[in-house]
Design a protein around this nucleic acid. Sequence first.
DNA 1: GCCCAAATGATGTGCGTACCTCAAAAATGA
DNA 2: TCATTTTTGAGGTACGCACATCATTTGGGC
Lengths: 345, 345
Amino acid sequence: MGRPTVTDIAREAGVSLATVDRVLNARPGVRDKTIAAVNEAVARLGYVRDMAAANLARGRILRVAILLPDTESQFLQTLQDALQQAATLASSARMQVELLRFPAKDMHSLAMMLADLAAGGISGVALMAPETPVVRDALRALHAAGVPVVAMVSDLPNSGATHFVGIDSHAAGRTAGVLMGRFLGGKTPRVMVIAQSMLLRDSIERRRGFDAVMQRDFPGIEVGQTLETHGATETLQQVMAVSLAASGPVGGIYLLGSGHRALAQVLSELGLLGRVVTIGHELTPHTIAALEAGWMDAVIAQNVGHIARSTLRVLQAKADQQPINESQERLRLEIILRENLPPSL
Amino acid sequence: MGRPTVTDIAREAGVSLATVDRVLNARPGVRDKTIAAVNEAVARLGYVRDMAAANLARGRILRVAILLPDTESQFLQTLQDALQQAATLASSARMQVELLRFPAKDMHSLAMMLADLAAGGISGVALMAPETPVVRDALRALHAAGVPVVAMVSDLPNSGATHFVGIDSHAAGRTAGVLMGRFLGGKTPRVMVIAQSMLLRDSIERRRGFDAVMQRDFPGIEVGQTLETHGATETLQQVMAVSLAASGPVGGIYLLGSGHRALAQVLSELGLLGRVVTIGHELTPHTIAALEAGWMDAVIAQNVGHIARSTLRVLQAKADQQPINESQERLRLEIILRENLPPSL
DNA sequence: GCCCAAATGATGTGCGTACCTCAAAAATGA
DNA sequence: TCATTTTTGAGGTACGCACATCATTTGGGC
């Protein structure tokens, strides 16, 4: 015998198929006693609803929207590719994914897009966005309408996000700290920290984690203030020069966000490429190349493929009102060196 | 309009449903020209088979067997737990998993179990086993019978294994080498390598990878011969004492396989616990505790949950004659420090 | 142009579930 | 006890696909 079906439940509980159906789908008009009898039969036979058949019968196609900022970073591109691929696969499981991008600086646009989605009858939303009041209100409205919301990469704890798919940024920073401390060895015990901007929750938390470890485990290493570049190579060059002049040479560089290409250029001009321990975040074509070339020593990353698949799985589970397999959805914080780079990408 | 269905394909291609079915399921008796026409319609409409409905219609329950040695190691226990959990989940995807264990030293028993499975009409087999002639022949028989075979953790390249789920052991050894070299810093440049036995393919390849990196990148570090303990604490104590007396103190220890508990004991007795850089393999309760306690510095691991799910997915795909999503099945080689230990396990 | 095999069409059934309608039975209140 | 409401039963259709059978058409060799 294979798995029990509704028919088996009906026989076991001594009721009709219709009644089993009413109980399983919480339809009205069944006595409590009967409900209990059916549930007992379910428990006794170990019945699990065949979600595939259920969704087939419902004839429903899950419409799900994923929103990313339109920033042109390699990480976002990589993430979008992964989502695209996962979406294609998901289409064979009655799920239709709409990949949208919103103006990174215009949270009102994002809020409007979210409102439109709510009005258009979406059954799930995932997004990567900063937690501003406007966004928070829009998400709460979605939540109130019963639409599950998944925060990707950067958490949105105060916006009623149903689920967070991403790594613990503080732990990521701590990991970077340990590696920096140990890799520095006999080099100049001074570390420079560089970021494009400190507006993003992630960067702030990474920095905090990094500092915590450095203070606790490597008190002999001096860590400079965060140098903000705002994305411009010239700014990077300038702030680095000023910092080097003011505080002296450094043995390590910690890159909080993106900007690996610009850093390579400036380091090269300063004759420092490959001579300072360099640690950054996220696996992208640039960081992979940097690891292979040997001038980056380690990258702290999260698996974008995993993020994409996990996001879709969570949205599916929420729509089906099914429990989430926590252990499968828990993202690992990956340490990537040249030696354990994935075979090709 | 929702997604296109077989009916849409039939209309678009100007053929009947039966013919579409014949093409989609690669049944004989269709002209090449007609096949092309159907495939074109499929491409034009962007048809993707609804696997849920397809599997429902097939009404088949995949019977799959997984074989593990009955060795009592924590890694195997962890792996078995992960497989158990994945199997429970897979049962809701019409797959029935039989978890079997075979006597680790008796390959003839294993071969007999495999033969029984083949006779019993199994639709897929996964196993973790050494590649001996007896096993190879049994696996080839399975392969000849059209039963897909998945090698787990340790590859079986010459036995016609359909697929390998696991990490590159040579790369794992190289990674251990890099970490050892960099973590050693100013410590005594001498490393001790310990293994329970060098019979397993994995251990050999790890050792080779480790040596390759040490020779290339850290020529100043002396790496000793592999000390084999054969699982006994007394032996470990003895060989370590002999080695220390003969070659002098060491700054690092590389543990190729299991035996973390015994090592902790001996190190503690020697007053070395936490004073030598210690690197090992696989995430188990013991290694997690060791990382948390701080006497192990790094663990090179593969995600057992991923192995379990990947194994079942691959078996499913093979049974469905479907292509495998390489990027999803590619296992990452994980570096675990205290700072990036998974939140609880 | 005829024949026979190969190719295609037409049609039905079933997988496990959702959802609907109508009839029948049981419980409830007066 | 009867009327009324509530609960339950019986049965059908649909979802998208696999698979089977039988009838019909088509094409190529002669």
